[in-house]
Write a protein that binds this DNA or RNA. Structure first.
Length: 218
DNA sequence: AAGGGAAGCAACCGCAAGCCA
DNA sequence: GTGGCTTGCGGTTGCTTCCCT
């Protein structure tokens, strides 16, 4: 905390926007802490940077997401997981925050994505993770993407592992692996004790590989 | 019309990586 | 090599708006 003047928080006013825009027009962006001080704004540098990137920058596109954009995001999310900045980088005019919010509020519902759950019996989380990784060979056309997250339980522990983490990523995430046209196949387990809860759009591919999965009715 | 809950979105927070003196 | 500063990222929070009763 600074003495004599705390940084403001909360929504930006039109006046604050104008002050930030005016400063950036003259001096350019970057060195956000300096901008925060020099522009006269009672905002921290981080807040100024975020406001510019997510709202004030002329490259930011507003309004509803088109079907094309949504389709692109779904495919990219399948490929990249929750790496929002990478996804946003390929959706012109959209920021990582926009993409993330849109995914969390619209697309995850649209796709019926929910938490996937793995029960691991007596295995420790670490050994389970190791086993999954070492015993699992993905089919050649499988890009290894999972639900938005997995919960692994071993009786004494419960941990949420993001699908983007390497231990749950079984094959290349190179773009050329995105060859399926229907958000198709998913991951590949050899572990027999696993009960797998997975999104609807992944059910068929999992069944195809003989996995014992249970569809959690919410 | 009013109140309460749900949904949507902007902004914040904590952490990590990169850069430079 | 290291410590401080800046930038960037993803998860989370909380405010506002909408909708239903």
């Amino acid at each position: 905390m600074e003495s004599g003047g705390e940084n403001r928080k909360g929504l930006w006013t039109a006046e604050e926007d104008r002050m930030l825009l005016d400063y950036i027009r003259v001096h350019g962006k970057g060195k956000w802490n300096r901008i925060a001080k020099m522009s006269g704004l009672k905002r921290c540098g981080k807040s100024c940077r975020l406001r510019w990137i997510n709202y004030l920058s002329p490259s930011v596109k507003r309004g509803d997401f088109s079907e094309e954009e949504e389709d692109l995001i779904i495919r990219l999310h399948k490929l990249l997981g929750n790496r929002w900045s990478l996804i946003a980088g390929r959706v012109p005019g959209r920021t990582d925050n926009q993409v993330k919010n849109h995914w969390n509020t619209h697309l995850s519902k649209k796709l019926g994505i929910k938490k996937a759950k793995i029960k691991a019996g007596a295995n420790s989380l670490r050994s389970l993770a190791g086993e999954i990784r070492s015993n699992s060979e993905p089919p050649s056309d499988c890009n290894g993407e999972v639900a938005s997250e997995l919960i692994i339980e071993d009786g004494s522990h419960s941990v949420i592992a993001d699908g983007s983490q390497s231990v749950l990523r079984f094959s290349s995430t190179e773009e050329e692996t995105l060859v399926d046209q229907n958000y198709g196949c998913s991951f590949w387990f050899s572990h027999e004790d696993l009960n797998l809860y997975t999104p609807a759009y992944l059910m068929e591919p999992l069944d195809e590989y003989g996995l014992d999965f249970v569809w959690d009715g919410m």
